[in-house]
């Protein structure tokens, strides 16, 4: 029980990670894939921040006397990773908009069908 409750953050991380990854693998709608990817990446953010947190720890500032403080580095790293994640999502969504303009759909299976039809038409024309 102590193990379950004591690692509460990590259970959340594992759950979100699996959930996000499953969505990425199983969905064919491109926006849903990006949602899954974001959830997957967010789980890693929580993982990093949990690593640096100490229960009862203060902010890492200079105060008189010894103090227990949380590690600020993991949070700083994750600030960078959040920026990266935003850029990835933005680029992904921009591509989805362009794909919708070019194909009239954002479903991977429908796009595959269109591509196959295109290929067949090229072979037909020879």
């Amino acid at each position: 029980m102590e193990f379950l409750v004591g690692h509460y953050n990590y259970w959340v991380v594992v759950f979100l990670m699996m959930l996000g990854f499953y969505v990425v693998i199983s969905r064919t709608h491109m926006v849903k894939v990006l949602v899954g990817l974001s959830v997957f990446q967010t789980s890693v953010f929580i993982f990093y921040i949990s690593l640096g947190k100490i229960r009862g720890g203060t902010a890492p500032i200079l105060i008189d006397g010894p103090a227990v403080y949380s590690n600020p580095l993991t949070s700083v790293l994750i600030l960078t990773a959040i920026v990266v994640s935003i850029a990835t999502t933005a680029l992904g969504l921009a591509l989805v908009v362009r794909i919708n303009e070019a194909y009239g759909t954002v479903d991977e299976e429908e796009i595959d069908a269109i591509e196959r039809a295109d290929e067949a038409a090229v072979l037909e024309a020879r």
Binding site: L34, T88, G92, L95, I99, A102, Y103, E108, E115
Partner: peptide, 9 residues
């Protein structure tokens, strides 16, 4: 576009 999207994911 689709190639880039799949590569991105």
């Amino acid at each position: 576009l689709t190639a880039a999207f799949r590569y991105l994911v």
